[in-house]
Every structure is written in C-alpha cells, then in structure tokens.
Design a protein around this nucleic acid. Structure first.
Lengths: 231, 231
DNA sequence: CGCGGCTTTGATGTTCATCAAGTAAAGTGG
DNA sequence: CCACTTTACTTGATGAACATCAAAGCCGCG
C-alpha cells in the first residue's frame, strides 16, 4: 500500500454526493483535512478479521473481496464489492474489531477517515447519520439476498449466477477478465473447485460462454439467465 | 391482529433502554403519543414483501420468522427473530416497500411508530440515529453470518445448528417446544423436508436428542456441538 | 368422520465432493 | 533468461450426500 497524502480536493470529488450528500462545503473541507487516500495493489490485504477498527473506509476505485477464514483454514467469500461502498460496512459502529477480512482483487483506492473524527461528525449531524444508516442497510440487504440466492441454487445455477454477477453488476459487459481464480469462485458459492471448473467447461462445450483462462465471454445470456433461475 | 391502544407507559417500558437509550423522558413521552402496540397470534402475517413500509416496528414479545417467497411458491426463511429487535430492520429507511415477509411463530406484541414521526425524531437527534445504525448493523451482521454458517455445513451440521439455535439463542433451555414445523426448518436451512426429518430420527436413535412431535430435548449437547462444527 | 396437511420411512436416482493424475501457467532464484 | 518450484487449472473415476418419489400413519379442523 502507498501512503495517503490527504490533499484536500474532496469538494470536487465525484463521489462526494454518493458518500456524503448531506455535508456543506465547509464541512467537506474539514473532513478533507482528516481524510487520507491509500492505494492498494491486487493481492494486498486491507485488513484482517479481528483487527481493531480505526478508520471509516470506502472504496473509491477498484474491486475488493470480503471474506472470512474458517476454522479449517479455508476461505469463505462474503461478497465482492465495487466502488462507492464502504468496505468496513458490516462491522462499522458495532464492534471494535473487523468481522471480515478484505483483500484487493483489482488495484484499488481507499479513502479513509479516522473513526473518532467520523463519530464526532455524526454526533452533530443527524442527516449524515441517517444517510449512512440507509446506505449501510442497503448494502447489508444486498449481501443477505445474495447469500439467500446462492443457497437456493444448485451447482449449475450458482456458477451461472456468478458469471452474470460479473457481467452485469461488476463489468457491465459480456466480455471481461475474471478478477478471481476458479478456487475463489468456489469459495464464493460454497462449491468445490473441481466442480466449478467442470461447470465452466460444460457451459463452454454447450456454447453458452467462451472462456480462455481469465477471459470470459457470455454468448447466450438468456440461457445463462434461465440456468441461474432454474437451479 | 388486535388493535393498539397506545396507552402511554413507555417511560417505564422495560425495553426503553434497549430500543431508545438516547431519548429523554420528555421525548419518550412524545414518542408514546405516537406509538401503538399490536398483538398478533401464531400464524398471523405482520406484513408481506412488497407492501409499503408505513411503520417502524419492533418486537416487544413473542417470536417471528422473516421469510421470502420464491418464484416457485416455496418459502425461504431469512431468519427467526426474538424480542428487542426491529422486525422491519432489513428494509428500514432504504426502500418504501418491505423486502421480506414476516409471520408470527409465537403470540407476539409489536410496537410500532409511524415512519414519518420516526424520521422527524431522527432528524433532530444524531445520537438516536447512531444508536439505531449500530443496532441495525449488528442485526444484519448476525443474519449474514448465520447464512454463511448454514451454507458451510452439510445436512447433519445444519440440523444440529438449528437445534442449538433454538436451545441456546431462543429458549435458553435444553427442553423446548419447536415453534416451527419440520418443513419450516427445511426452508430455513435449505434442505429437503424428508431429510430434515430423517436427521431428527437419526439424532434420536443415537441418543443425542429426544423428540416427541414439537417437543425437543437436547441430551448430548457436546455431541451436537461437534456435529454442528464438523459438518 | 373425512379431508388436507404434516410427519415418517424406504427405495431410487441425481448431484456433488473427493481423490488422483496430468497439464498449463506463474512466480523464484541462480 | 532459463531451470526450478509452486500454484492454478483441467478431466476422469468413485463413493458419499442429498433430493425426489411413493406409501402409509397421524393429527387437527371443519
């Protein structure tokens, strides 16, 4: 990770409206003095579960995975998060240590503000707190529904779901490079790596997708949709 | 459902500290004038997914299940909620309609306050908003972790998990009456009804539990724990 | 008392994890 | 830059786990 400089350009930050819609220019200026920005590279760990929460963090650019490590050492992926979302969302304000670990899937930029300052900021601004409440709730609701969806599908449906997740929600494109390994997909949908790979091969053989290493191309979106809904 | 009278006794309500720890006596008095209390019987539906959110609701007494109905008409249980929690928690402040349905497992008392009044209350009280934020986050975090736990276990582990859930978190007793049918347990842990029943029978045969209809008695807690962790 | 829904158990086939063995790709040190 | 090591990927074969179907008993309710 490369250190943050904290240059105060938040007034013009394109994410200001998304994250802090209720702050005045003056308040944003003050916030800026207390924030810093960090860059992380693919593979780096932002924080581990159990570590003390010191900062409010949100993802400005990139892609990260939220995961937890099970007692047998394997990883379970909670969700994959795109920009504009807090990445400490699940634990924020509730605990003093993170519930889940976060690692970087694509080079990312994180903005962070000390928790103490955030608390102070919130104490004087109910609108800000309510806005955050709404956002946190929505993020959590998304994670819950995603988990229920996954639980409800069989192997084929889960793999179709993941491909559609990347094509629609992450990349908005039929062609994209997978930011995760086959094993990570398995960790995400709670299936074995071998069977995830087998299903990719099946989809390829049936002309539903094209796949060369990390490159994925969705050929038959309708079929994939059907498989995701059926399974 | 039996209608609410709204008698103003909130000042002495044993749940005041739990739900509204940051309100003064005066504020609670005003809140009271805007709240009402409803009683629901086992089997009644408090609200259905898709219905407009009009009230902030929390569970004062009883037991409810949060669920969603899938496209094929079957139910998937999101979680089972005990008193002191908001029951509209997942959707609150985010959407104008409920994401999940809620029905009553044991005769329940719900306190509800109009959403408009709640919003007003929050606008002027950042501490209240922050307190709610913390609570909502914690509830959601619990649901997420629960779902991940379930996904991670096999049939035996999931059934053991559910029995322990009721014994420890709901009833704090080794002997209790199941508030749900075998089918509902299946809907909760995403397994078939027949296999849930079969597993109950296995546990009974192995002397891990005793089960007569709805009555469940945990005999070997350690064994059950082991099965829940293994699977 | 009869109907429908819940419960139970057995039998059967499908789905899935696991093991194994081999190939490809990607990092590592000389 | 190449040899080496490790990690990711791929496919087949096998057995375990699970859903589904079917039949029968049970219970509550109109």
């Amino acid at each position: 990770m490369a250190g943050g400089l904290g240059i105060c350009i938040c007034e013009n930050c394109e994410f200001r409206e998304v994250i802090f819609p209720h702050l005045t220019d003056e308040e944003v200026h003050e916030l800026c003095a207390n924030k810093s920005e960090s860059h992380y590279r693919k593979g780096e760990i932002i924080h581990r579960e159990g570590e003390e929460i010191t900062d409010f963090k949100y993802l400005k650019k990139g892609l990260v995975k939220v995961f937890r490590t099970l007692s047998d050492g394997t990883e379970q992926i909670v969700t994959i998060t795109r920009p504009f979302e807090f990445i400490s969302n699940v634990s924020f304000f509730t605990r003093n240590s993170y519930t889940y670990s976060i690692s970087v899937l694509e080079d990312s930029t994180i903005c962070h503000v000390s928790l103490d300052y955030m608390r102070e900021l919130f104490s004087g601004n109910a609108n800000l707190a309510m806005g955050l409440l709404a956002r946190v709730t929505r993020v959590n609701e998304g994670i819950i529904t995603q988990s229920l969806e996954i639980r409800n599908k069989n192997l084929v449906g889960r793999v179709a779901f993941v491909i559609l997740f990347f094509a629609r929600e992450v990349y908005s494109s039929k062609v994209f490079d997978l930011p995760v390994s086959r094993k990570e997909i398995a960790d995400f949908i709670s299936m074995s790596t071998a069977n995830v790979i087998r299903t990719f091969s099946d989809f390829k053989r049936e002309g539903i997708i094209n796949a060369e290493g990390k490159m994925i191309e969705v050929i038959d979106m309708e079929k994939l949709d059907l498989l995701a809904k059926r399974g």
